[in-house]
Every structure is written in C-alpha cells, then in structure tokens.
C-alpha cells in the first residue's frame, strides 16, 4: 500500500505540531487512541471566548503516516471555524481529502474523535467557569 501525495505532504510537513497550556480556560484538549494500531493522538484548540472561533489548533500524534496526516489536516480545518462548525467535520471528509485506503479509515475516525474530545473538554471548562448560571437553573 502506498500513501497518497497529500498524506506524504502532511507527514513530511505536519501543520501545527505542538502543544498549548492544558490548564488554560480557553484551551480544550482531546487525547484519543486507536486500539487497532496503538496510535495516540493529542489535539488542542484555543477558542476565542467572545466569538467561539477556534483561533489556534495544535496536535501531537504518535502513529502511522495516515494518523499524523489526519490530525494535521484536522488542525488545519478547525482553525478559523466556530466550535459548532468544527463539530460538523466528519471522518469521511478526511478520508476523501487524503485519499485514505479502507485499512486506514480508523485514522480518520481517530482525528474526528480528537476534535470532538477537544471541543468537549473546552465546553466542560466553560460550564464549570459559570457556576452562577448553573446554580440559577
């Protein structure tokens, strides 16, 4: 099996590798893993609290080329989107963009999971940051 040019490009020049402060209230962190292959993927987003736009996205993935490319692409795609827009990204979009073969579909699933997990983490932080609203309920 050979990788598509886009996968190779992302693999050789991964976008947005790195990390952000996990404890920051504006940062959401998603850490997910694929038991099929043992890959582990960390994706972080920094969200503007007024606009809900994802201003920054970082990732670090230990895994195969497709997993790295999927998460690299995911960070590119979520940047500039609102949180709700980012939630519409589907794994099959990633599969199509990167021309992933069927055996590598789980990598795209992992990337979607990472986006969702990061957003979920961020949302949780926003909720716990508003204790007054929660009590008023």
């Amino acid at each position: 099996m050979s990788y598509s040019d886009k996968v190779i490009d992302h693999y050789n020049h991964p976008r947005n590798v790195g990390s952000m402060d996990k404890s920051s209230p504006d940062v959401g962190t998603g850490l997910v893993g694929a038991p099929e292959c043992g890959d582990v993927m960390k994706l972080q987003i920094k969200v503007n609290r007024d606009t809900n736009v994802i201003e920054e996205a970082k990732f670090k993935t230990f895994g195969c080329g497709s997993a790295i490319a999927s998460s690299s692409l995911a960070t590119e795609w979520v940047k500039g989107k609102t949180v709700d827009e980012a939630l519409t990204i589907k794994n099959m979009d990633i599969v199509k963009e990167l021309s992933l073969p069927p055996v590598k579909i789980h990598c795209s699933v992992l990337a979607e999971d990472a986006i969702r997990a990061a957003i979920g983490d961020w949302k949780k932080k926003q909720e716990s940051a508003k204790p007054v609203a929660a009590e008023a309920k």
């Binding site: 038991p35 789980h106 699933v109």
Partner: peptide, 22 residues
C-alpha cells in the same frame, strides 16, 4: 473497527462525547 466507527457516528448524531476504548 466497526464498533469504533459506529460509536463515532453516534457521538456525531447526539453531540455526546464518545467513550474512548482506551
């Protein structure tokens, strides 16, 4: 693999956070 994929699809539909296997 099917299990993992369908769990992601469910998370997408319901907006709930997918329970990670690991």
């Amino acid at each position: 693999e099917e299990q993992s994929k369908s769990a992601t699809e469910k998370a997408r539909a319901t907006g709930e956070v997918k329970k990670q296997i690991v």
